[in-house]
Simulated assay, not measured.
Amino acid sequence: MTPNTTSAQIDINGQNLYIHYRNNHPNRPTLVFLHDSLGCIQLWRDFPEKLAETTQCNVLVYDRLGYGKSAPMPTHERPVDYLTEEATVLNELLAHLEIDQAILFGHSDGGSIALITASNYPERIKAVICEAAHIFVEEVTLKGIREAMEAYTTTDLAVRLQKYHGDKVDTLFKAWTLTWTRDDFRNWNIEKLVSAIRCPLLFIQGEADEYGTLDQVTKTISLVSGRSEQYLIPNIGHTPHKEAPELTLNAAKQFIETL
């Protein structure tokens, strides 16, 4: 595509998605940012642009269906393999934008989507940076989700989220919490997919992550077929790019420079 900056709604396989795409560095990779289960473009703040600028990469950030400025989800009910479905949408988005040197940066749910995409569509993916990703369900994750459910009814969490998601908040919150706490989701596991990943991978995690243990990191690192490394940050929770932005930025920059 010709160099440009686009912020627009686009249709991907019937899904109306809002994207921000800056394609100003010909023949350079594109950093693709995948938000978490309550996230959106806005909630990344300036982190994507900072990493793109310091690495001289193009950058794509988008709101998944039901989030931010994208169209609403038709229902909060999700299948167990909804993250695999999101990876399919991402692959179609990359094809639509003619991106074939993607460096995926995914946080939480977005990290899991990044891993699945690298496994299922390796021809488009140059590398993966996953931050606080999950490859299986842990009790600590479910505990964190149940606490979020309590906060949603007893604090102003819903109001704060509404600022970013509008009237889609209830649906997206249920889509996350009710899916992950369902009995049939307890056995969700993508370890077989992870073992097929051959591109370089960096796993960033806060050592005090309230939604996942370091088992997520060590198992992912041990399973992938390609080069892999971890970056653990002491006293940091589930969102290193917000809680320790400079450390996270530097770790990602150093990793990208080795590619």
Rank of each mutant, 00 (worst) to 15 (best):
A8R: 04
K163M: 09
R146G: 07
N16W: 01
E229M: 10
T181V: 06
V59C: 09
Y121R: 02
I125A: 09
C199P: 08
L104C: 08
Q162V: 02
S112P: 10
R227H: 10
P245I: 10
E123T: 07
E147Y: 12
S119Q: 08
P48G: 12
K168A: 03
T155D: 14
P48R: 05
L94S: 10
S37V: 07
E150P: 09
I190L: 04
R198H: 05
R22W: 02
N187S: 14
S112W: 10
E139K: 02
K242F: 09
K174S: 13
V169K: 03
L201H: 13
T218W: 06
V159T: 05
I10C: 09
A132Q: 03
H107G: 00
R28H: 02
P26K: 15
F47A: 06
L51M: 13
T171F: 04
I236R: 07
E246D: 14
A148Q: 15
L202H: 11
H76F: 15
D109C: 08
N235W: 04
D81W: 14
D167Q: 03
Y67H: 08
A244H: 11
A132H: 07
Y21G: 03
A102I: 02
A52P: 12
D184K: 12
Y152P: 00
T177W: 09
T220F: 04
A133R: 08
Y67R: 04
L232P: 12
L202M: 12
V224Q: 01
G206A: 15
E53K: 12
T88P: 00
W44T: 03
I113C: 00
N235F: 09
H96V: 14
D184F: 07
N91F: 00
G212V: 07
Q230V: 03
D170I: 14
E257K: 11
R160Q: 13
L249M: 15
L31G: 04
P240F: 12
H76N: 11
G66M: 12
L43K: 09
D81A: 14
P29G: 08
P79H: 06
D156A: 14
N24H: 00
D63F: 13
K168H: 06
F33M: 13
E207Q: 09
V159M: 03
N58F: 00
A127V: 07
E191P: 10
V217Y: 04
N23F: 03
H238W: 09
E138D: 03
A252L: 13
T179E: 02
E210Y: 09
P48E: 03
L223W: 14
R64A: 12
E138G: 01
A148I: 13
N120E: 14
T258Q: 15
N13S: 15
I236N: 04
D46I: 03
A127L: 08
Y152K: 06
C199T: 11
T141Q: 05
H238K: 10
E150Q: 13
V89A: 11
L51N: 10
Q254L: 04
T171K: 05
E131F: 05
L178I: 02
W44S: 05
I103C: 05
S119R: 05
N187L: 11
I19S: 13
N120I: 11
E85D: 11
A132N: 10
A102W: 01
S225M: 00
V59G: 01
I236L: 06
D184I: 11
L60E: 13
Q101A: 11
G166R: 04
C199L: 07
